[in-house]
């Protein structure tokens, strides 16, 4: 008897908790991303460890984002180097706050295993996410970032190399095409974006 009363009470309590849940979630959940946020894309990606994630999950942190393909021997390694140098040029608190996302142009060849290997070769630690989506998602992300790319018949890609800084809401705060050197204007923008707390 006691036992069943207890059960009923538990059940009622948990029902009550469930009823509260949407309210609590509604109160705790941030408003939708701003209209000019790249998170409006709701881009579904997979990281170098095979974990699926939405681009919007980066919301709340400043993000450096660029695009690449693993078999690229020319400019792409320089993009990684430039981002490494930019991170090193930041004060420790800003560096720790920052996330880096590299999205592949080449999801057909950049499998999770290839992304994992590229992350190791390019010295990318946990701060970095190397990501792949489907072709359409890559095209949409490039469109939102104003990155141009085309696949050539030999499997190589032509592409513009742009490193973009997103603010905590996913809005484009700065862009740079400078490679092989730290763009001081970009670093200045990181200071500004970091200063605005999420």
């Amino acid at each position: 008897m006691n036992h069943s009363t207890f059960n009923r009470r538990q059940a009622l309590l948990s029902l009550g908790a469930m009823a509260c849940l949407p309210l609590a979630a509604g109160a705790a959940q941030p408003a939708a991303s701003p209209g000019n946020s790249i998170y409006q894309l709701h881009a579904a990606l997979t990281d170098q460890d095979g974990r699926p994630f939405e681009l919007e999950s980066l919301r709340g942190s400043p993000v450096l984002v660029s695009m690449f393909y693993s078999s690229c021997q020319m400019v792409c390694p320089m993009v990684f180097e430039t981002i490494h140098s930019t991170l090193k040029a930041l004060p420790a608190s800003e560096r720790a706050d920052m996330k880096v996302v590299m999205v592949s142009f080449d999801p057909a060849r950049d499998t999770v295993a290839v992304l994992k290997k590229t992350a190791a070769v390019r010295n990318c630690d946990a701060q970095w996410t190397l990501a792949r989506g489907d072709e359409s998602t890559s095209r949409k992300i490039a469109a939102a970032l104003n990155i141009q790319y085309r696949r050539l018949s030999d499997g190589e890609f032509n592409h513009s190399t742009i490193i973009t800084l997103l603010d905590r809401e996913g809005r484009i705060a700065a862009r740079t095409g400078k490679l092989g050197t730290v763009d001081t204007a970009l670093v200045k923008s990181v200071h500004e974006v970091h200063a605005v707390k999420g």
Binding site: M74, V75, C76, R150, L152, F157, N158, H159, S160, T161
Partner: peptide, 10 residues
């Protein structure tokens, strides 16, 4: 031209 990876602008 460094802006473009690969064969560059076409």
């Amino acid at each position: 031209l460094l802006k473009f990876c690969g064969a560059g602008a076409i």
